[in-house]
Design a binder for these strands. Structure first.
Lengths: 340, 340
DNA sequence: CCGCGTCGTCGATACGTATCGACGGACACA
DNA sequence: TGTGTCCGTCGATACGTATCGACGACGCGG
C-alpha cells in the first residue's frame, strides 16, 4: 500500500519510465514482450497512477463534473436514476464523477474549470433563463446541459422532447373522444424558477389542443393539496368526457388517491395521463397511462455527447439539441373511445 | 480564462512564487502589505490554483470520496438528504466530493486511495458483514462509515441509534396499553444483503418486547404488496390492541393507504409507528407517529468526524462509534391509552 | 557597538507523469 | 553492401505547487 510510482514499475520491468507511460497510453508502439513485462510489474505492485501528477503533466483529469440541484423544485426523486446512469457511464470510460451542488451557482462552474478539477461538465436542472449557461459557455472545458434553456449559447443540450410528450398526451385524449382537457400545473417553486420544461410542456399542450379543437385549461399546482385539486377537477366534469394531463410525476399518485377517495374511477369516470417513468406508471395502483420520461435514456445520451466532445474523432457527430422521443403506454386510466 | 499560475500572480505582485504559496497556506508569516498585494493580484487574474499540481506537491487533494449504493434495497429515496448534507459540509471546508457507486465494490476504494483521488472517504450503506470494511481499514486514507458493521475494524462509524429507535417504538406501544406488536419486515433485497440496520432493529425490538412482556412477530416484507400485508395485519387483530412498527420508511405510506382502503383507521382501530424522517411523517395523510431517522444529523456528524480525522488537532476527539439518538414524535396513528 | 533571535522573503528542489527528440537496430530495396 | 525507413526504447524536460534551507533586515539586551 506504500504508493508506487511508474518509476518503480519501470525498474522492476527493466525499462525506462517513459516506456511504462507509453504502455499505459498506447501512444507509441511497444513490443509485445516489453508490454507484457510492464503489465506484470504493474500487477505485482498493484500500481495505480497518481491522478494529480497525471492531470498536471497530461492536462486531463479523467474526471467529469456533475452539477445538480438538490433543493426541492425539480422532481428531487427522479434525480437518482440520472446520477446513477452518469456515474456508470463515467466509470465505463475510466472517468470519475465530481459532484457539485447547484446552489453554488456559477461559482461552482468557475471552480471546476479554473482549478482544472475536471475535463468536462454535465449540468442538470437547467432553467429557461439560466445565469449559469453563459458562464458555462465561456469555460475552457466542454459542457453538456440536461435540459434546454431559451438560449443554449452554443452548448450541447440533451433532454426529453417535452413538446412531443405534451402533444402525444393531448392527441391520445383527443383520439379517444374526450371533449375537454385539463393540465395540472407544476408546483409553485418549479413555476417560479422557470424550470425549462415547464414552459415547454404547457405551451405545447395548449397549441396541440387548439389544433385538435379542444378546450384546455391549466389548473393551479397540486402542491400537496390533492384533495382540492381533485375537487376542482370534478367540478369541471359537467357531463362531458374530461381528460386530465399530469405533467409532474410527483403529483400523479396523490391525485389518483384523492380521486379514488371520491369514488371516481380513472378510466371509467375520468381520464388521466401522467408524464413519468414507465416504472412509476406500472407500479402505481391503478397503473396509469403515461408518456414516458426516462431519465436513463436522457443521461446516457448526454454522456455519449460529452465523451464525443472530449474526443471528437470517435463516433459520429452529435446533434447540438438532442431530444429523446417519448413513448406513450396505454394502461388503465384513459376511457376507451365510446362505441356509439 | 487562459489559466494563470501562481507564478503569474507572483510576477504581478512583485514577489516570488513561494511567497504566493505562503499567502495561500498561511504556513509562514507574511507582512500585511505583501499579503494584500498578492491577494489583489489573485483577484485581478481570477487566479485559481491547479488542483493536480497541488495534489502532487502537497500530497493532499482537498477531495472527499463518497461511496454510495444506488441500486434498490436501501431506501434509495432517503439517499438525497445524505448526499446533500455531505456536499454542503465538504464545500464549507473547501473540499470537493467525488462520487463512487458501491457496485464497484472494494475496487472503487482501492482506486480512490491508490490514485490519490481523495484525502478521505465516507462510505454509506454498510452491510453487517461487509467485504469492503477490511479493505477500507487497510487504506492509507481515513474512512468514515455511515452504518455500523459487525466488525468495524477500527474505523469510525456514525449512524442512527437503531437499537434505541426500535426500543422507543416498542416502549411507546407498551406504554399505551397495546397487547401485541407486529414489526413489518424489510424488503427482501435489504434482508438478503444483510444491511446493517436491519438486524439491529429487529433484534432490539424483539428484546424490548420481551422486557415489556409483549408478544412480537415480524411479518414478511411488504415489497409493494401492501394489500396482502394489510390483510395479514388485520387477520391478526383478534380483538386485542395491535401495534404495528414499520421500520422501512418506503413501506409506511403504501401501508397506510391499504389500511384506509379497508376502512381501518390508524389511531382508532390499530396503531402504527414508522421509522422515518419527521418531514415524511408530518406530510403523510394521516400524519403518523414516528421515530425520527434524520439523515442530515447523521451525515453532518460523519463529516465532522471525517474532518477531524484529517486534522486531529482541531476540535475534540470523536467517538469511534457515534450513534445519533432518535426522537419519538406522537401524531395521530397510535391509539391513546384506554382510560378504564 | 556587537551578538543573537525573529520576521519576512527568496531560490531551489521535489512531487509523478506525459511527451518530445534522439538513437540504435532491423529490415527492405537497389 | 550501402542507404533509407520504420519500429521500439531511452533520456530529458515540462507541468504548477508546496516546502525546505538560507539570508538580509531589524530590534533588543548587554
Amino acid at each position: 500500500m506504500a504508493a508506487f510510482t511508474s518509476k518503480d514499475v519501470a525498474r522492476i520491468a527493466g525499462v525506462s519510465q517513459s516506456t511504462v507511460s507509453y504502455v499505459m497510453t498506447g501512444k507509441r508502439p511497444i513490443s509485445e514482450r516489453t508490454r507484457q513485462r510492464v503489465l506484470d510489474a504493474m500487477e505485482q505492485l498493484t500500481y495505480e497512477p497518481h491522478s494529480g501528477a497525471r492531470s498536471l503533466a497530461g492536462r486531463r483529469t479523467r474526471v467529469v463534473g456533475l452539477v445538480v440541484r438538490f433543493g426541492i423544485g425539480g422532481d428531487a426523486f427522479g434525480l437518482l436514476p440520472f446520477i446513477e446512469t452518469i456515474a456508470n457511464s463515467a466509470r465505463a470510460h475510466d472517468h470519475e464523477v465530481l459532484l457539485v451542488t447547484a446552489d453554488e451557482g456559477s461559482a461552482g462552474l468557475r471552480r471546476l474549470a479554473g482549478r482544472a478539477l475536471c475535463d468536462a461538465i454535465i449540468m442538470m436542472d437547467i432553467e429557461e433563463q439560466d445565469d449559469r449557461v453563459p458562464v458555462a459557455a465561456a469555460l475552457s472545458v466542454p459542457v453538456v446541459l440536461i435540459g434546454v434553456p431559451a438560449d443554449p449559447a452554443g452548448l450541447h443540450c440533451v433532454d426529453l422532447d417535452f413538446e412531443a410528450a405534451a402533444r402525444m398526451a393531448v392527441d391520445e385524449l383527443a383520439d379517444t373522444g374526450h371533449d375537454e382537457i385539463v393540465v395540472v400545473g407544476y408546483p409553485a417553486p418549479a413555476m417560479e424558477r422557470g424550470l425549462n420544461y415547464v414552459g415547454r410542456v404547457l405551451r405545447s399542450a395548449r397549441r396541440q389542443a387548439q389544433v385538435r379543437g379542444l378546450p384546455l385549461t391549466v389548473t393551479e399546482p397540486v402542491d400537496g393539496r390533492e384533495a382540492d385539486a381533485a375537487d376542482q377537477l370534478l367540478a369541471r366534469r359537467t357531463g362531458g368526457r374530461l381528460g386530465v394531463v399530469v405533467p409532474h410525476s410527483d403529483a400523479i399518485v396523490p391525485l389518483l388517491n384523492a380521486l379514488r377517495k371520491r369514488d371516481v374511477v380513472p378510466g371509467r369516470d375520468i381520464s388521466l395521463i401522467g408524464l413519468s417513468s414507465d416504472r412509476e406508471a406500472e407500479q402505481s395502483d391503478p397503473p396509469y397511462t403515461n408518456v414516458s420520461q426516462e431519465p436513463r435514456d436522457v443521461s446516457r445520451r448526454a454522456m455519449e455527447t460529452l465523451f464525443w466532445l472530449l474526443d471528437p474523432g470517435s463516433g459520429v457527430e452529435r446533434p447540438v439539441i438532442d431530444l429523446v422521443a417519448p413513448r406513450l403506454t396505454r394502461r388503465t386510466t384513459v376511457m376507451p373511445t365510446p362505441s356509439n
